[in-house]
Protein backbone atom coordinates (compact mmCIF):
# COMPACT_ATOMS: atom_id res chain seq x y z
CA UNK A 1 0.00 0.00 0.00
CA UNK A 2 1.23 3.48 -0.83
CA UNK A 3 2.07 5.59 2.15
CA UNK A 4 -0.05 8.61 3.03
CA UNK A 5 2.05 11.74 3.21
CA UNK A 6 1.32 13.98 6.21
CA UNK A 7 3.14 17.26 6.72
CA UNK A 8 2.42 19.17 9.93
CA UNK A 9 3.32 22.84 10.12
CA UNK A 10 5.07 23.73 13.35
CA UNK A 11 5.83 27.37 12.55
CA UNK A 12 5.29 29.76 15.45
CA UNK A 13 1.90 30.90 14.19
CA UNK A 14 0.61 27.32 13.93
CA UNK A 15 2.28 26.43 17.20
CA UNK A 16 0.34 29.18 18.94
CA UNK A 17 -2.88 27.76 17.50
CA UNK A 18 -2.12 24.27 18.76
CA UNK A 19 -0.12 22.41 16.14
CA UNK A 20 1.52 20.44 18.93
CA UNK A 21 -1.84 18.84 19.67
CA UNK A 22 -1.76 17.52 16.09
CA UNK A 23 1.70 16.10 16.71
CA UNK A 24 0.31 14.36 19.77
CA UNK A 25 -2.45 12.78 17.68
CA UNK A 26 0.20 11.27 15.45
CA UNK A 27 2.40 10.23 18.36
CA UNK A 28 -0.49 8.43 20.01
CA UNK A 29 -1.71 6.59 16.90
CA UNK A 30 -1.95 2.84 16.94
CA UNK A 31 0.84 1.15 14.92
CA UNK A 32 -1.68 -0.14 12.36
CA UNK A 33 -2.39 3.46 11.32
CA UNK A 34 1.05 4.86 11.87
CA UNK A 35 2.75 2.40 9.52
CA UNK A 36 0.75 3.82 6.62
CA UNK A 37 1.92 7.35 7.25
CA UNK A 38 4.96 9.23 6.11
CA UNK A 39 5.14 12.07 8.62
CA UNK A 40 7.21 15.22 8.42
CA UNK A 41 7.25 18.42 10.43
CA UNK A 42 7.49 21.56 8.30
CA UNK A 43 8.64 25.00 9.50
CA UNK A 44 5.99 26.84 7.47
CA UNK A 45 3.24 26.00 5.00
CA UNK A 46 2.67 29.63 4.02
CA UNK A 47 -0.85 30.09 5.42
CA UNK A 48 0.09 31.73 8.73
CA UNK A 49 -2.91 32.97 10.66
CA UNK A 50 -5.15 30.16 9.44
CA UNK A 51 -3.43 27.53 11.54
CA UNK A 52 -2.87 24.97 12.58
CA UNK A 53 -2.16 23.83 9.03
CA UNK A 54 -1.26 20.50 7.52
CA UNK A 55 -0.61 19.13 4.05
CA UNK A 56 -2.22 15.77 3.58
CA UNK A 57 -1.31 13.91 0.41
CA UNK A 58 -0.27 17.18 -1.15
CA UNK A 59 -3.44 19.08 -0.25
CA UNK A 60 -3.33 21.95 2.23
CA UNK A 61 -5.84 21.99 5.09
CA UNK A 62 -6.22 24.94 7.47
CA UNK A 63 -7.66 25.25 11.00
CA UNK A 64 -7.24 21.54 11.58
CA UNK A 65 -8.40 20.16 14.90
CA UNK A 66 -7.01 16.98 16.47
CA UNK A 67 -10.36 15.24 15.96
CA UNK A 68 -10.41 16.12 12.28
CA UNK A 69 -6.86 14.94 11.74
CA UNK A 70 -7.61 11.65 13.45
CA UNK A 71 -10.60 11.11 11.19
CA UNK A 72 -8.60 11.98 8.09
CA UNK A 73 -5.89 9.50 9.00
CA UNK A 74 -8.28 6.69 9.83
CA UNK A 75 -10.33 7.21 6.66
CA UNK A 76 -7.33 7.38 4.37
CA UNK A 77 -5.68 4.27 5.76
CA UNK A 78 -8.85 2.21 5.47
CA UNK A 79 -9.08 2.63 1.70
Amino acid sequence: MRKVKLEICSGTSCHLMGSFDLNQVVNNLKPQYKEHLEISVIPCLGECGEGPNIRFNGILYTQVTPERLKKMIIQSTQK
Binding site: S10, T12, H15
Partner: peptide, 13 residues
Protein backbone atom coordinates in the same frame (compact mmCIF):
# COMPACT_ATOMS: atom_id res chain seq x y z
CA UNK B 1 4.41 34.05 21.24
CA UNK B 2 1.46 36.19 20.12
CA UNK B 3 3.92 39.08 19.78
CA UNK B 4 6.31 36.94 17.73
CA UNK B 5 3.49 35.92 15.41
CA UNK B 6 2.40 39.55 15.06
CA UNK B 7 5.96 40.51 14.18
CA UNK B 8 6.15 37.73 11.60
CA UNK B 9 8.95 35.94 13.43
CA UNK B 10 8.90 32.20 12.89
CA UNK B 11 11.12 30.57 15.49
CA UNK B 12 11.31 27.38 13.43
CA UNK B 13 13.01 29.23 10.60
Amino acid sequence: TAMLVAAGINVME
